[in-house]
Amino acid sequence: MTDTGVATGGVGAAGTPGHERVRRGYDTVAEEYRARIGGELDGKPLDRALLAALCEQAGDGTVLADLGCGPGHVAAWLAGRGRTVVGVDLSPAMVTIGRERHPEVEFREGDLLRLPARDGEFDGAVALYSLIHLSPDELGPARAEIHRVLRPGGPLLVSFHIGTGVRNLTEWWGHEVDVDFHHLEPAAVAAALREAGFRIEAQLERAPYPHEAETRRCYLLARRPD
């Protein structure tokens, strides 16, 4: 999440007008996004702790997915902890930057409703601020798709901005864009995860860090049951 209130990756359903706008928006700002956001984990101690917990829960030598990976900085952080990591993003420009800067990570262009992955391919997954580009009726199918690509017992870390309504961004760092960002209620997201077959193991909220947009954030740590 940047201090402009936008997310760390653009993942949606390719082919629909709303998601094509998301794709174009992230393609437009990809290089500047990397420059501004590529080191964000240095200033996010809780995020690092939760990512480390997911790595430990998934186990050594496991394969993790970063869904909505943007330029790949979170995926690279996970890879630096000895995991094999696959980053997935809707934006071709983001995927290109990720491949150039983080050769230790495999990057795939794709979306949350049709993930480019086999059933049970991943031992764990993260989706940090990537669900917020989906319309309410797409949240359930997206979570079912994440459930499909996780192995039984695999952990999932999800984060999002708390609230209701949609923010439309028309200008981003001096570039003209047209991207919607949905704020989400924790109870609704947790319910959708449970309906998809996940077990919620932890729920945390935090206030924004000084360099972030002034929204509260929620983290849900879930697991696909064995």
Results as ranks from 00 to 15, higher is better:
residue 28 T to N: 07
residue 72 G to D: 06
residue 161 H to G: 13
residue 74 V to M: 06
residue 119 D to C: 07
residue 128 L to T: 03
residue 164 T to W: 02
residue 173 W to S: 08
residue 9 G to S: 09
residue 97 I to G: 09
residue 153 G to W: 01
residue 178 D to H: 11
residue 14 A to R: 14
residue 105 V to C: 09
residue 189 V to A: 05
residue 13 A to F: 01
residue 144 A to P: 07
residue 131 L to I: 15
residue 57 Q to W: 13
residue 124 G to S: 02
residue 113 L to F: 04
residue 200 I to M: 07
residue 96 T to M: 12
residue 22 V to H: 00
residue 116 P to Q: 09
residue 92 P to R: 11
residue 67 L to D: 04
residue 203 Q to V: 15
residue 19 H to M: 12
residue 158 V to P: 02
residue 59 G to M: 02
residue 45 P to L: 14
residue 83 R to N: 07
residue 149 V to M: 04
residue 56 E to G: 14
residue 15 G to R: 05
residue 94 M to R: 04
residue 121 E to R: 03
residue 70 G to Y: 06
residue 37 I to N: 09
residue 47 D to I: 02
residue 192 A to Q: 01
residue 144 A to C: 11
residue 65 A to M: 10
residue 197 G to I: 06
residue 12 G to I: 04
residue 104 E to K: 05
residue 134 L to Y: 06
residue 220 L to V: 12
residue 116 P to R: 08
residue 74 V to S: 11
residue 29 V to A: 11
residue 210 P to Q: 11
residue 190 A to V: 01
residue 201 E to P: 14
residue 108 R to T: 08
residue 79 A to E: 02
residue 151 R to V: 09
residue 161 H to A: 15
residue 117 A to W: 00
residue 17 P to D: 15
residue 68 G to M: 00
residue 83 R to V: 06
residue 176 E to A: 15
residue 43 G to Y: 01
residue 144 A to V: 12
residue 11 V to R: 00
residue 207 A to H: 04
residue 75 A to Q: 02
residue 163 G to C: 13
residue 71 P to D: 12
residue 28 T to K: 11
residue 221 L to E: 11
residue 195 E to K: 04
residue 216 R to C: 10
residue 218 C to D: 08
residue 23 R to S: 07
residue 111 D to R: 00
residue 101 R to A: 15
residue 84 T to A: 12
residue 175 H to I: 00
residue 86 V to N: 03
residue 78 L to S: 02
residue 199 R to E: 15
residue 75 A to Y: 02
residue 197 G to W: 03
residue 106 E to K: 10
residue 222 A to Q: 07
residue 133 H to G: 08
residue 46 L to Y: 03
residue 108 R to S: 09
residue 13 A to R: 13
residue 90 L to A: 10
residue 67 L to Y: 02
residue 38 G to F: 10
residue 11 V to Q: 00
residue 152 P to R: 06
residue 2 T to R: 01
residue 51 L to R: 01
residue 88 V to N: 12
residue 45 P to D: 11
residue 188 A to M: 08
